[in-house]
Measured scan of single mutants.
Amino acid sequence: QVNIAPGSLDKALNQYAAHSGFTLSVDASLTRGKQSNGLHGDYDVESGLQQLLDGSGLQVKPLGNNSWTLEP
């Protein structure tokens, strides 16, 4: 069960990665100043990332080996 409060997208993504045990490689300029609506409930990694990114204009991309990145 994930419980991440709304706020900074950077912070939300870092909390989610730490909670879910995956690696997220992101260029900080992509997420700077963006906000997230947070995340509450049970999600697989990709669904949770998509939910956190909702409205940010960013997309999640798998890199393999439980690693992910973001792209515009």
Rank of each mutant, 00 (worst) to 15 (best):
L53Q: 02
Y16I: 04
N3E: 09
L39I: 08
Q51V: 13
S25Y: 15
D44W: 04
G41V: 02
V60C: 14
L13R: 00
N37E: 08
Y43I: 04
G41Q: 02
T69K: 09
V2H: 07
N3L: 10
L13G: 01
T23P: 06
G7L: 00
L39V: 06
E71Q: 08
D27F: 01
S56D: 01
G38D: 01
N66R: 02
Q15P: 01
Q35L: 14
S25V: 15
A28T: 11
H19Q: 15
T69L: 14
S67A: 12
Q50K: 15
L63R: 06
N3I: 12
L9D: 03
L24S: 05
N14E: 15
Q15F: 08
A18T: 11
V60N: 01
L13A: 01
G41E: 01
S29M: 10
D27Q: 06
T23R: 06
V2Y: 10
P62N: 14
Q59T: 13
P72E: 12
Q1D: 09
Q50C: 14
D27W: 02
G55K: 06
S29H: 11
L52Q: 01
K11L: 12
I4R: 00
E46K: 11
G41H: 02
L49C: 05
G64P: 07
W68C: 07
V45I: 14
D27H: 07
T31Y: 03
P6L: 04
D44F: 04
G41K: 02
S29D: 12
V26T: 05
S25H: 15
G33N: 10
R32L: 12
G48R: 02
S29A: 13
K61M: 08
G38V: 00
V26I: 13
A18G: 07
V60T: 06
K34F: 07
S8H: 06
G41I: 03
G41W: 04
S36V: 05
Q35G: 07
G21L: 03
L53C: 07
K61V: 14
T69P: 04
I4H: 00
L24A: 05
L63F: 07
D54Y: 14
Q50I: 13
L24M: 08
L49V: 01
T23W: 09
D44N: 09
G7P: 00
V60P: 15
I4D: 01
Q59K: 14
L53M: 04
Y16Q: 02
G21R: 07
P6K: 08
L9A: 01
K11Q: 14
N3F: 14
D44L: 06
V45D: 03
Y16N: 03
Q50H: 11
A17P: 00
H40Y: 13
A18H: 10
K11H: 13
S67H: 14
Q59I: 14
Q35I: 13
L13N: 01
S29E: 14
N3Y: 14
R32E: 13
N14L: 14
L53W: 00
G38T: 02
A28I: 10
Y16R: 02
V26S: 05
S25E: 14
D27S: 08
N66Y: 08
L63V: 09
L70H: 04
D44K: 05
L52F: 00
D27L: 07
N14I: 14
K11E: 15
L39K: 01
Y16L: 07
S56L: 09
G57K: 04
D27V: 06
K34C: 10
V45T: 08
Q51E: 09
V26G: 08
N14G: 10
H19W: 12
K34R: 08
T31M: 08
Q15H: 08
T23I: 13
A17V: 08
F22K: 06
N14M: 15
D42Y: 15
Y16V: 02
L63C: 12
L9K: 00
Y43K: 00
W68E: 05
L52T: 01
L49E: 01
T69W: 07
K34W: 07
W68H: 04
A5F: 09
A17K: 07
L63K: 07
V2P: 04
E46D: 07
G48S: 04
L58E: 01
N65Y: 08
N66G: 11
K34E: 06
L39P: 01
Q50L: 12
V45H: 05
S56F: 07
Q15S: 09
L49S: 00
G55M: 05
L70M: 05
A5P: 14
W68T: 04
H19K: 12
G57Q: 04
D10Q: 13
G33M: 05
D27P: 09
F22H: 05
G7W: 00
L58R: 01
V2F: 10
N65L: 08
E46Q: 13
Q15E: 15
L63H: 07
N66D: 08
P72W: 09
S8W: 12
D42C: 15
S8V: 05
S36I: 03
H19D: 12
A18D: 08
P62Q: 13
A12M: 03
I4M: 01
Q15R: 06
N65F: 08
V45Y: 05
Q50A: 12
N37G: 11
L24E: 05
L13Y: 01
A28L: 11
V60D: 00
G33L: 06
L30F: 07
S20Q: 13
